[in-house]
Design a protein around this nucleic acid. Structure first.
Length: 345
DNA sequence: TGGCATGATTAACT
DNA sequence: AGTTAATCATGCCA
């Protein structure tokens, strides 16, 4: 059915043609139609009426939808995380450049940079698309404004709707970026177990301290910091090292003594002497690492050559003795049973 | 390639 | 919070 766009004679005619035309699309380039509508003598009056009606019906909607915007907490969370992970915001990687740390660290940073790039590219594309689309819609609305009652608030509302739609896309982008970073991070953290041995020099420094403080190998926080600095490792690595060292040192002693006991028992049995627990010096000398336990006549069964003499002297957290007596004295070698080497620390 | 050395992690403890 | 003891996982060497 073809619609007449002749200026109608009566009001009812005009209303009729208006009704019909409102069902039609005006988005195509039907210039004559638009022109004729614009030129219509009753246009401004009708336009105003329609605007009023619209205001009454539509404005209510706007109130409900406009102020729920605010700051999307989810988006904020994502933003915070991206900044914290160094994806958004200033490039943290650049400043860490010359650090000659391990290759997996470099690998991690490279991949993070990649994610950063992709993310930023996408973000730019997103901004562009959003702006473009908004512009397009605004232009469209401006065009329609001449023919249909479109209030300013309505345009704003439209823009905010568009922005919202794009926001959800943005959230998706940020979410997937976060996901990628988390995956990368967890892989990197897994790689923490990829341990690298400390440098010889570092081990040297740590061992020196350990054996110099064998009577109390528990470095203070400051001492740990100092050692960490010297060895170019972290304080917690120093703690780990001392934890491992103490336990392994102790274990070695235990093992050595067990071995000594075994030999002593064997020998005693062979000689028919029932004096268990007193291995010969030569047996003790044939023992394990660090030359510890090298003191002469070290009794197998007991930890200290002085038996109970020390009494309560050794009270290091339930470890009954090792660090109080078995001196590491590679230089002095099998010398006196050193007590209380130095309790400072 | 197997086995020991060693740094890191974890649970339990104090 | 700092340790111990056990354990994991990798580095390294014969």
């Amino acid at each position: 059915m073809v619609v007449s766009i002749e200026p109608p004679n009566s009001l009812s005619d005009m209303l009729h043609s208006l009704q019909v035309i409102s069902d039609e699309t005006l988005e195509d380039n039907n210039h004559e139609k638009k022109k004729s509508l614009e030129m219509h003598p009753m246009r401004s009056a009708l336009f105003q009426v329609l605007c009023e009606v619209k205001e009454k019906t539509v404005l209510r909607l706007q109130h409900s939808s406009v102020d729920d915007q605010g700051e999307d907490p989810q988006l904020m969370r994502l933003d915070n995380m991206l900044v914290a992970e160094g994806v958004a915001g200033p490039d943290k990687n650049a400043s860490l450049g010359a650090d000659a740390s391990s290759s997996d660290q470099a690998d991690y940073r490279m991949k993070l940079t990649q994610i950063r790039q992709v993310y930023n590219n996408e973000l730019v594309r997103y901004e562009e698309a959003c702006g473009e689309f908004t512009q397009h819609v605004m232009a469209l609305l401006r065009d329609q404004q001449r023919l249909r009652p479109i209030a300013k608030t309505e345009v704003d509302r439209m823009v905010s709707i568009i922005q919202k739609k794009f926001n959800t896309i943005q959230v998706q982008l940020k979410q997937s970026t976060c996901e990628a970073v988390m995956i990368l991070r967890s892989r990197h953290l897994d790689a923490r177990r990829k341990r690298r041995n400390f440098s010889k020099q570092a081990t040297e420094v740590l061992n020196e301290y350990f054996y110099a403080h064998l009577s109390n190998p528990y470095p203070s926080e400051e001492a740990k910091e100092d050692l960490a600095r010297q060895c170019q490792i972290t304080v917690s690595q120093v703690s780990n090292w001392f934890g491992n060292k103490r336990i392994r040192y102790k274990k070695n002693i235990a093992k050595a003594q067990e071995e000594a006991n075994m030999y002593a028992a064997k020998k005693a049995a062979a000689q028919g002497l029932g004096v268990p627990g007193f291995p010969s010096a030569s047996v003790a000398g044939a023992m394990p690492p660090y030359g510890m336990l090298a003191f002469p006549g070290a009794p197998g069964a007991m930890m200290t050559p002085y038996g109970g003499m020390l009494g309560s002297g050794s009270e290091h957290l339930g470890m009954s003795a090792p660090f109080d007596l078995s001196a590491y004295n590679p230089q002095l070698h099998s010398g006196m049973p050193p007590l209380n080497e130095d309790k400072k620390s």
